[in-house]
Design a protein around this nucleic acid. Sequence first.
DNA 1: CGGGGCATTGATTAAATTCAAGACTAGTGG
DNA 2: CCACTAGTCTTGAATTTAATCAATGCCCCG
Lengths: 243, 243
Amino acid sequence: MSLSSGPKIWSTLNEICALLRINPGDTLSDDIKFQHKRVRAGQSVYRQLQRFDSLFIVSSGFLKTIVIDEGGGDRVTGFPMRGDLIGLDAIHAKRHPSEAVALTDCDVVIVEYSRLMQFCTGYPGIMAGLCRIMSAELAREQATAGMIATMSADTLMARFLAQLSDRYAELGYSPREFSLRMSRAEMGSYLGLTLESASRALQAIGRAGLLSVNQREVVLHDVDALKTMIRLPAAQSMHRRAA
Amino acid sequence: MSLSSGPKIWSTLNEICALLRINPGDTLSDDIKFQHKRVRAGQSVYRQLQRFDSLFIVSSGFLKTIVIDEGGGDRVTGFPMRGDLIGLDAIHAKRHPSEAVALTDCDVVIVEYSRLMQFCTGYPGIMAGLCRIMSAELAREQATAGMIATMSADTLMARFLAQLSDRYAELGYSPREFSLRMSRAEMGSYLGLTLESASRALQAIGRAGLLSVNQREVVLHDVDALKTMIRLPAAQSMHRRAA
DNA sequence: CGGGGCATTGATTAAATTCAAGACTAGTGG
DNA sequence: CCACTAGTCTTGAATTTAATCAATGCCCCG
């Protein structure tokens, strides 16, 4: 169905399971198809307060999820990329508490929630997979949340870069050299910092010799050192310039 | 329902659904029973790194969930109470990434995960309920996480107290007058503050006339005002004493 | 070539942490 | 019954960190 000539607009259930790294445990008909949706950079996959009916799987591209508080200020809660299932936080209230904005042109698979529930009853492997994904998300949030309160700006930034590096590696990209797809303000918001602090933290790590940064292009010189500084208890900060 | 003579040691599937506020959508046999477990104050329901096989539903008592980082320092991630399902973050890795410690004597229902999955395939209502619970947890974490980075210590504390008040109200206790079951250090850890800052924030709100606090006993004088100060954008802080 | 976002950098200010005493409470044993 | 002790909580002063305020520089795009 998908011709090499253009973007894919339908995926089978099997393909979806592969994207999500779920082992369905049954043979699935290739007749079960899910539609794709293309989203331009700057556009939203779903908006806050919008009625929930579908989850989305990122097939390609890079997005941010944000929560907009009463005051109109928005906070970045994540940077979904290929293989991520987004919209899970909307199941509870049947309404999206957050918004997913494409940072690059994106291709997402539309997974209607009622349909997903049907597959869950039919295929226990899919249900287990869904639970595992939600659990992982929960554990990740939990681990991150507390760090933000405890760690210094420099350490937070190091952790963020190390995480990004790992995710790129998983997707088969270079874990050493990549492009940040988000602005300093977006990074900062995600880490609970101002854009100035985010910039300074990045520069500080650069001065320590662990990376080179030029605008949004980053080269990590020592990924291991980056990961090491994360687990330093009270983080000897790098506020002196490298001699 | 439970005889006054002693603690209940078994619950039916129906009772569990009621506790979790799930509508199963089917009639369930009362022959399906789940064992309870009593936990003394200070004891753990499960420990970090322990192998995962069961979730737990809090039937009575008050607990804290903590994550212990490499350095041995622990951070509080939540304060589960009656009706809360705990251990969900362990499904993914089949190992508990956090630990649940009883702050008072507790009674929890043991829900073996493999059994739960079976009920999920048999009863779509239960599966939907589980998904809703996990989604709610996810949304809650997300909403809280960012606030910690953005809001002032006073505002965080106000928010925390307002939340506690709401939860007590839901359980049929007084939303105005209650006992904090945790230490200042535990509150602080949950909010990303030191114990001193937690104490000061509490005193500041007290001086503003919104509450009286004596050790762990709290009386909220104006719950609405408390909730109002939460949504003030940059929080005119209350660092002057009330005239 | 000019203009509008972004990003960096510096100086100042505000907030929370840290360090350090003391005060209250409950529990223990004389 | 009263001191005594351990644990928790409050309060104060100093220090530190990141936010804020304010330019300036850089790059891409029209």
